[in-house]
Simulated scan of single mutants.
Amino acid sequence: MKAEVGIIMGSSSDLKVMNQAAEVLKELGVSYEISIVSAHRTPELMFEYAKNALSKGIKVIIAGAGGAAHLPGMVASLTPLPVIGVPVKSSNSIDGWDSVLSILQMPGGVPVASVALDGAKNAGILAAQIIATADEQILRNLQSYKESLKSKVDQMNKDIKA
């Protein structure tokens, strides 16, 4: 099955966070691929990935990066696909703020959707929601997922009143 979501990150140190996107996409039945594409260390690879994603069947790109976090914005500048940026709190980060602001403050014409610091799970859900606009099965999977969240809160209320 062709991947519908491309999950990319700047370094293997981002994998722990970015795997959260992969896990929720798998749960929702959305196909994905995951790889390391560094904007700074492998710019040619980043360029090639962004330019070829659409022709490979990718519909949404989730790009996670820490520190200066140029990966999501640079990829967005090279593709017509929606890009969801995940700021990653990394060892070289200024408490994550550098990553958040690098992804959030994009110039007009080059949008990047942004989730919370280390918020790859929400990036995966958002990617699935985008795909669900044209895929009834993914939409049903998302509806079930949302219902399960409601059930969890209902159970929490029962637990605290017991």
Results as ranks from 00 to 15, higher is better:
residue 34 I to R: 04
residue 84 I to C: 08
residue 135 D to T: 02
residue 50 A to D: 10
residue 23 E to M: 00
residue 133 T to G: 00
residue 94 I to W: 11
residue 40 H to R: 00
residue 76 A to Y: 04
residue 144 S to T: 04
residue 117 L to E: 12
residue 118 D to E: 06
residue 28 L to R: 05
residue 100 V to C: 06
residue 110 V to P: 02
residue 137 Q to W: 00
residue 38 S to I: 03
residue 88 V to M: 03
residue 23 E to F: 00
residue 88 V to N: 01
residue 126 L to T: 09
residue 120 A to I: 11
residue 89 K to S: 06
residue 73 G to M: 02
residue 87 P to T: 08
residue 16 K to N: 12
residue 120 A to Q: 13
residue 19 N to M: 15
residue 110 V to G: 04
residue 90 S to V: 05
residue 83 V to F: 03
residue 101 L to F: 15
residue 57 G to Q: 12
residue 119 G to Y: 03
residue 27 E to Q: 15
residue 44 E to Q: 14
residue 52 N to Y: 02
residue 79 T to N: 12
residue 56 K to P: 00
residue 146 K to S: 14
residue 59 K to I: 11
residue 25 L to D: 10
residue 114 S to W: 00
residue 15 L to V: 14
residue 33 E to S: 14
residue 18 M to V: 01
residue 112 V to N: 06
residue 63 A to M: 11
residue 77 S to Y: 01
residue 124 G to S: 05
residue 139 L to P: 00
residue 26 K to R: 13
residue 101 L to G: 05
residue 82 P to L: 11
residue 24 V to W: 04
residue 14 D to G: 08
residue 37 V to P: 07
residue 33 E to R: 10
residue 75 V to Y: 06
residue 32 Y to H: 13
residue 107 P to Y: 03
residue 148 S to L: 02
residue 84 I to Q: 09
residue 45 L to P: 00
residue 115 V to L: 12
residue 148 S to P: 01
residue 117 L to W: 09
residue 42 T to P: 04
residue 20 Q to A: 15
residue 139 L to F: 11
residue 42 T to H: 12
residue 133 T to M: 15
residue 20 Q to W: 00
residue 24 V to N: 04
residue 41 R to G: 00
residue 124 G to N: 04
residue 29 G to M: 11
residue 117 L to Y: 08
residue 139 L to D: 03
residue 129 Q to V: 09
residue 67 G to S: 06
residue 101 L to E: 09
residue 35 S to T: 06
residue 82 P to C: 13
residue 74 M to P: 02
residue 73 G to F: 02
residue 118 D to Y: 02
residue 149 L to W: 09
residue 85 G to V: 09
residue 99 S to I: 13
residue 145 Y to D: 13
residue 150 K to C: 01
residue 28 L to C: 06
residue 24 V to C: 07
residue 62 I to R: 07
residue 122 N to G: 06
residue 109 G to D: 04
residue 143 Q to S: 05
residue 127 A to T: 08
residue 59 K to N: 12
residue 108 G to D: 01
residue 103 I to R: 03
residue 102 S to Y: 07
residue 114 S to F: 00
residue 90 S to L: 05
residue 148 S to D: 12
residue 134 A to N: 12
residue 83 V to C: 03
residue 66 G to V: 08
residue 66 G to P: 05
residue 149 L to N: 12
residue 31 S to Y: 01
residue 33 E to D: 13
residue 14 D to R: 05
residue 46 M to S: 08
residue 98 D to E: 05
residue 33 E to M: 11
residue 100 V to H: 07
residue 63 A to I: 12
residue 63 A to Q: 09
residue 69 A to D: 08
residue 72 P to S: 06
residue 57 G to H: 11
residue 96 G to D: 07
residue 14 D to K: 06
residue 96 G to E: 08
residue 66 G to Q: 08
residue 79 T to P: 11
residue 59 K to G: 14
residue 41 R to F: 01
residue 140 R to E: 15
residue 20 Q to K: 15
residue 69 A to Y: 06
residue 108 G to Q: 04
residue 72 P to A: 06
residue 31 S to W: 00
residue 117 L to S: 10
residue 56 K to Q: 14
residue 140 R to C: 03
